[in-house]
Each structure stands twice: as structure tokens, then as C-alpha cells.
Computed example of a mutant assay.
Amino acid sequence: MKLAGAGDAIPREKVLLDKRYPFFIAETIGVNVHYQKLHWHDVLEINYIKSGCGYYIINGKTFEFRQGDILLINSNDLHCAYEVRDLVILVVEFDMSWFAGSLRYDPEILSPFKDMGVHFTNLLDRTSPYIGELRALLQSMQEEHEREQRSYVSMVHAALLRFLSCVNRHFRSEEASKCRPEIGSMQLEKVRRVIHAMEERVAHPWTLEELAASAYLSPSRFSDIFRRAVGTPPLEYLIQLRLEHALALLETTPLKISDIAMECGFRSLSNFNHLFRKHVGMSPKHARIRSKANP
């Protein structure tokens, strides 16, 4: 099986933001299954780790983060997140067009994203004396956004402008290019396409050899690239996709559990029950009962 053409690669997620106020900010507790999948989107993103710890895989590079850290995620960054303990993240997303006017008098204002991997890294230096200022600005954005007092849009825009200016001035590094991931853009594109094929045909009896051949790579080379890009081997990732699909069917359809197992590519009910309990932490029957109790 060959991969689809260039136009059929995994599309960037379209994040819908108000054109007059292209900004989103909210706290997330833990990491849901969606963000454990490799994805990319069309907005710029800032993550402030309010508590706990975990790690991001961004363009094949692993960044371990802990309370107080700040990460920048570009609009073309392939990334997924994993929680280790007690994770609360303040997520900020915004459209770069919001700063089109600012670029006229400060063409470097978006450099922290445009020069990512050259002069900036995704994880900002936690030892910098200016990291506290960035945390305070993010907290200010959250408060203004939630209170919606008069002129709050201007206040949020001003705080975000200061945030970007501070990063551009104090977090630029000539050493950043040395930290570039070993996985190239063409290899990441192959991973995107393979994941898209797996998601489109989640019940297909994929083998490692078939997945590798679809990317025109040997099984060992493909496994190495996939693991470094996604953080887990390809067939384990396939199991995660199948279990995610199964959980959605359990919560939204009256299908029998045995039928759901077959629908999601599991060849035996006992294997499905075992893997579901191992990865989800409960039996499929319990998951269905819980979803009905908490609609």
C-alpha cells in the first residue's frame, strides 16, 4: 500500500477563533487522549505549566517540563503531550494575523516562532531571570480574558505583545540551532502520512512491514523514526488509536462490546478486554456504565 499524495497528508487542525479577537486561553487538567496523538494546527501556542510535570514530543525531540516552565509551539510543529503527575497547563492559542500591524514597526515581534530551531527553542530557559516576568504576563492575560472588563481585548493584546517582546529580547540564543531534532521535515511528513493512513483504516490488520513499506523505509528504520517522532512504537500507537475509537463507540453507540472489538480491529474479545483494561484502567463494560452515569 502506497501513501496518499501530498494533498492528502494529515491536514493542520483548523482552530476557529473570533477574527476580531483571535485569542484563546484556558487551563487544562491532565492530557486527554486527543493531545496524546501527534497533531499540528494553524495557530501559535504558548503553554505555561502551572503544576505537575510531563513531557512534550515536538518534531521528534523530547522536552521534559515541570511546574513553572513555558513552552512555545509553532503552527507547523508536530507535537503530542504526556502527563507524568498532577498536570495543569495554561494553554494560550492565537492567530499570528493579530500582530500584522505590529510587524510594520517591529518586524521581529514573531521571531520566537519564525526563528524556532534557529535562535529559539520550544522550551524557554527556566533559569532565566526574566521567566518570572513571562509567567506574570500570562497570568495577566488569563485574568483579563476571564473577567471581560472594559477594554479587556486591548489589555490581553498588550500583555501578549509584551510577552513576545520579552522572549525576543531575552531568550534568543545562538546555541538553539545545535538542539535541532535529528528527524528531518521529509521524515516527519512520512510519519504524518502513515498516521493518517492508520486513522483512516483503524481496523485494518496493519503489520510493521506494511507500514514501513508505505513510507518507503525498512521496518527497523521506520520504527526508529516513528518512535522518536511520536514517543511510542508504531504498533503500540495503533493500539492507542483503536482503543480511543473503541472508547468513543462505547460512549456513543449501543453496539455490543464484541462488535466494537471487531469494529476497531481487535481479533478476539479477550485480547480487547485485556488491552482496554491495561491502557484505560477499567473494563469496557465499566467504561460504558460510567459514560451513562456521567452524560
Rank of each mutant, 00 (worst) to 15 (best):
A4W: 03
G7H: 13
A9Y: 15
Y21V: 04
V31E: 03
H39L: 06
H39I: 01
E45G: 03
I46N: 09
Y48N: 00
K50W: 02
S51F: 07
C53Y: 02
Y55D: 06
I58V: 14
I58S: 08
F63K: 00
C80S: 14
L87Y: 08
V92K: 03
S102K: 15
L103D: 08
Y105F: 00
E108D: 13
P112M: 02
V118I: 15
H119C: 07
L124G: 10
D125S: 10
Y130G: 01
I131R: 04
L137M: 14
E144L: 11
V153A: 00
M155N: 01
N168W: 03
H170R: 13
R172A: 10
R172K: 09
E175S: 01
A176R: 04
C179S: 08
R180N: 07
M186N: 07
V191I: 13
R192E: 09
H196T: 14
H196G: 09
R201M: 10
A203T: 05
E209T: 10
A212I: 00
S214I: 02
Y216P: 01
L217Q: 08
S220W: 09
F222G: 01
S223V: 08
R227A: 15
T232S: 07
P234L: 12
L235C: 08
I239G: 05
Q240A: 11
A248T: 10
L249E: 13
P254G: 03
M262F: 09
E263L: 10
C264W: 05
F266S: 12
K278S: 08
V280P: 09
K285D: 00
H286P: 02
A287E: 09
A287L: 05
R290M: 11
R290F: 14
